[in-house]
Simulated scan of single mutants.
Amino acid sequence: MNRDQLTIFAITAGWTLVVGLFGGAILWRFRRKSLRITMIVAGLVPMLAALAAVTQSVQLMFISAHDSLVVLWTLVFSGLLGLAMSVLLGHWVSTGSRDVGRRLRQLGTSYEPVEGRAAVPAELAAITDELELTRQRLAASRERERALEASRRELVAFMSHDLRTPLAGLRAVSEGLEDGVVDDVPGALRQMRTTVDRMTGLVDDLFELSRLSTAPPPRRRSAVSLRELAEDVVGESCEHARSEGVALSVSTPDDDDRLAVHGDADELTRAVTNLVGNAIRHTERGGAVKLTVDRAEDGRVRLAVTDGCGGIPDDDLERVFDIGWRGDEQRTPSSGSTGGGGLGLAIARGVVESHAGSIAVANVEGGCAFEIDLPAVSSSA
């Protein structure tokens, strides 16, 4: 490399350093300003450095006037192109940044979504998409909280009523016994015991629901035959069904499949008993309740309880398993043990979900069907 080339190299490097430091100072000065300005500055700095280096090289006669003119025009047009690209890119990034800021401000709130999306870099587009998903999740969570709060208020109101009524009865009977105006003392004591049993069952339901809601460590579980469990529940509930004038039956496969699931036998028995008791209670006299236990196509074990309640309004189907929910006076989902409170179906759902299963309800001809799906015990278990 000869002397002239070294001089040109030194001039170019010097101007690049000087203009670069000047541009860096401007960027630092405007670091808290609009991103568009900083991108324009970043696009102009290299062009200014090249212009300064070429201009000094022309003055020192290292480049001829003709060649310098060609280089200068090339730099001018290249600089204008770079400036236009910087402005366009700055606009895209600024638009995307404003959209991100808007979505951040609106997290946890509802707003009318904007149709389409501005042309922004992929990174900002990914951020806006993630923010939108986060907003939707927060909105859904807020709706769930509202629904749970409404459920709690309903539960408190219902439980207050369900407790007040038997307490008033106990007080009346106890005052009658105290004043000696009750002739049938043994009958009064039996009535008091029955009332206490109802209240005890209600408290037990509340305790069980609280235990399921707080997600405690799972109890010791083993292989449970859902087939045998269903037959036992039908045997225990047949007297209740007979007193209500309801035919109760169970249907199982013809083979020897035990339809085993991995779970807690007591919890599963309680869930199925609640469903059966609820079905018997809301089936008209002369109707039928049927349990069906079988294996689904995906290998899971399915238990269905079909009743003759006349069906549930479509608007209420999604609320059937809510804590404390009650339908109309003719159909009030409740627990199998207390006959009040609207806890039986909520407990059944809690038990099934704690066993990694699912529970659903659908209207069928003349009534509705509650279906439980539970993972089957593997053959190696």
Rank of each mutant, 00 (worst) to 15 (best):
V19R: 01
D255M: 05
R198H: 06
R300P: 06
L177G: 06
L75W: 04
V261M: 07
P216H: 04
S354L: 02
R198Q: 13
T55K: 10
V185K: 00
L275P: 05
F77C: 09
M159Y: 02
T194A: 12
A346C: 03
V70N: 12
L248R: 00
E175P: 05
L124D: 02
A118I: 08
M47Y: 08
D183T: 12
R326I: 11
A265K: 09
W325F: 14
R326P: 05
E365I: 14
D204W: 02
S94K: 10
Y111H: 15
S57P: 08
K290D: 12
R190G: 10
G14K: 06
L248G: 06
T7W: 14
E208V: 14
D373Q: 04
E154F: 05
E112V: 15
S174I: 13
L317F: 02
G187P: 09
F22P: 04
E143A: 15
G169F: 03
D307R: 07
T165D: 10
A172T: 13
R326H: 13
E132G: 05
L60K: 01
H91W: 07
I127V: 13
E154V: 11
G187Y: 01
R153W: 11
R326Q: 13
A260V: 01
N278Y: 08
W92H: 15
A140L: 14
G82C: 06
T55S: 13
V114S: 12
R190N: 13
F77S: 13
R193P: 00
A125S: 10
R117I: 02
I280H: 08
R135K: 13
A140R: 14
L83E: 01
F30A: 05
D264L: 10
E112N: 10
T200Y: 09
A376N: 05
P333Q: 03
V173I: 11
F9Q: 11
A346R: 03
V156C: 05
L317P: 00
F77L: 15
L51W: 11
R281S: 06
L189F: 12
E178C: 07
G20F: 00
V19Q: 07
D256E: 14
L345T: 09
A49T: 00
G277D: 08
D179A: 14
V45E: 05
I280G: 03
D264F: 04
V87K: 07
L206G: 10
T7S: 03
A147K: 10
G24E: 06
D254S: 12
